[in-house]
Design a protein around this nucleic acid. Structure first.
Lengths: 168, 168
DNA sequence: TTAAACTTTCAAAATTTATTGAAAGTTTAT
DNA sequence: ATAAACTTTCAATAAATTTTGAAAGTTTAA
């Protein structure tokens, strides 16, 4: 397989995976493109490579910066902005976990905590079932939350090393 | 808060979380409704409670069955089908992990393996960067895959116990 | 200043995804 | 065999999300 074709496939695969997990396909594709680029790229180059509009490129790049996955670079004597992706996979994974936790897990945890406190008739099967489900899910979500917290603070080797030591 | 209001909030929260993670909002809501129902429900009751059409209810219920999250129940002397959700949170988590791995992670792993094998000019920075990114992501994805595998086989207590023993 | 180079915005358009509902299909009881 | 009770299908429609592109905004150099 040619490098160009392989790059293409990677961008497609990353875009598909992203969209299946609730991340805008274009955002995932721009990220993929920057990930496999040795050099920082301009908006112009990104637009051209992925055949997207200027507006789309601009918004997507801003989002990626907000996610902490890419950064702007400036070059002496040039007005154009260049974009460069963090290349360390572990940092990418941590950054994504961090953002999604903040945006999506935390709000749900807050609601689950509230709902866990709802009181009701302890002889009503409808109440019992509601209470048990909510309480159980809340516990699981808290476990996930704690594990993410550990992951965010951890070094890659330590994290996976620990997991494999246990899981053999 | 009233039980009815709490149920409503739970269904909304579960639906929102689902849609943020690439799961159809209605599917997540139907699942939520069944999760907190003491009794199995009919299509009719689900349609009414969530204000969705018969077709939508039918397709969504079929999907949930395919995901292994709910099952059909039959009652003696009745023609109607009743739907009942698996209530064990750990089993739900495992089931979701299992399905998503099969549907979304495995195909990407396959592509990453292919792309890891692409050969090229070892002095070309573009090739070096491509190769390193793909190889690193492939390693991470394989770690995730192995961890999911362990989780699928594990008992809840053992799994979280092991994680906490390590993470303190 | 001015104007060229570049970036940002956002309403409208396109695309993708989800939903409807009526018709077709199936099962069961008589 | 018939019909009532119930389920499934899917083309059409609606809703949600994404993308466009041109205008407005900003920065820099002279």
């Amino acid at each position: 397989m040619e490098l160009a074709e392989a790059k293409q496939k990677f961008i497609e695969a990353w875009g598909k995976l992203g969209s299946e997990w609730g991340i805008n396909r274009t955002m995932a594709q721009v990220h993929a493109l920057l990930l496999i680029s040795a050099e920082a790229l301009t908006t112009e180059e990104i637009m051209e490579t992925l055949s997207i509009s200027r507006g789309n490129a601009n918004m997507t790049l801003r989002d990626l910066i907000n996610w902490g996955l890419i950064e702007k670079q400036h070059r002496a004597g040039e007005r154009k902005e260049y974009f460069y992706a963090e290349k360390d996979t572990w940092n990418i994974a941590r950054q994504v976990a961090k953002e999604r936790r903040k945006r999506e897990l935390d709000p749900v945890l807050k609601i689950l905590d509230e709902l866990s406190k709802v009181e009701g008739d302890a002889t009503n099967p409808e109440f019992i079932t509601f209470n048990k489900s909510v309480t159980d899910i809340n516990k699981l979500a808290k476990n996930v939350d704690k594990t993410l917290d550990t992951m965010l603070k951890a070094e890659e080797n330590w994290f996976w090393g620990s997991i494999f030591k246990i899981f053999k």
